[in-house]
């Protein structure tokens, strides 16, 4: 069961990744090309998933949406990984920095994630880069907390104490002992953050503070489809399924990685 779920996660994420990477090849029309003659087509040979209210091909918009969603998600993962690791390391390793850094992280985490992301994205202005910044600001504290927790444990181990006694520099200890040990929980956490980022980016787009239309993001497609739910529900159905499958793939991947990389956190099964 475990392995099957993990395999499902790999396959789902793999499919979305292929769609995103080969969007240029897989799309049959430019994602922003409007053909008013072909508005609201139901799925047919020329338009595999039908067309939207501007006569744009939904399939083509979907694959370009995959590219943007994954790009933003990956951007958030990289930014969060770097910032979270830096802050977590500093707080965990250097005691004097611990209190101020972690109180700041607590304060950021006190805000509801979605609300803070919306407020920051709206203040910075709607764009893909600003969505990445807003989401990274929201998810960095969670990462920092996990890195710090591992660092606190590793720091007290005998091998680190021994290295210190031998006169090793802090930089050397962090690179050779602390970082490698923090990696496993970090990777697991970042996989889940990837999933949250895809979901929350869709919310930002849906509410109009993500990359502005006519950019083909999944959130934008749902926002546009929202006005035609009665006549053409498929406009909103397909991008929603795309988001759900992507998030599901990443969640399954994260669960599986956690079982392999971080046995301490393993959920008991049967």
């Amino acid at each position: 069961m475990r392995h099957r779920l993990f395999a499902t996660g790999v396959v789902l994420f793999g499919i979305v990744l292929v769609l995103a990477v080969f969007a240029d090849v897989l799309a049959i029309a430019p994602p922003e090309k409007m053909q008013v003659r072909f508005r609201f087509r139901t799925p047919e040979w020329a338009f595999p998933l039908g067309t939207d209210n501007f006569g744009r091909d939904i399939w083509s918009r979907l694959v370009y949406g995959a590219r943007l969603s994954l790009a933003i998600g990956f951007g958030v993962v990289v930014a969060t990984g770097i910032a979270g690791t830096a802050i977590g390391l500093a707080a965990g390793y250097f005691r004097r920095l611990d209190n101020p850094l972690m109180r700041a992280m607590d304060a950021l985490m006190a805000f509801p994630a979605v609300l803070l992301a919306i407020a920051i994205a709206a203040a910075l202005g709607p764009s893909a880069i600003n969505a990445v910044i807003a989401l990274a600001a929201v998810y960095t504290p969670r990462t920092a907390r996990i890195v710090r927790a591992t660092v606190l444990v590793v720091r007290e181990t005998e091998y680190v104490q021994a290295a210190l006694a031998c006169g090793a520099r802090h930089y050397w200890i962090i690179r050779h002992h602390v970082l490698p040990n923090s990696l496993a929980p970090l990777i697991v956490q970042l996989t889940f953050i990837f999933a949250y980022a895809v979901l929350t980016e869709a919310i930002l787009s849906f509410l109009g503070v993500g990359p502005p239309p006519p950019t083909p993001t999944w959130g934008n497609m749902i926002a546009e489809g929202k006005d035609y739910l009665r006549e053409a529900p498929l406009l909103a159905v397909f991008p929603g399924i795309a988001i759900a499958l992507t998030a599901l793939g990443l969640n399954l991947l994260g669960d599986g990685l956690r079982d392999v990389l971080d046995p301490r956190l393993r959920v008991q099964h049967g």
Binding site: A195, A202, I203, L248, N251
Partner: peptide, 13 residues
């Protein structure tokens, strides 16, 4: 798994 993966605004629609 559906709960953590389905975007709730879409589910609402």
């Amino acid at each position: 798994l559906a709960g953590v993966s389905i975007p709730n605004f879409w589910l609402s629609l």
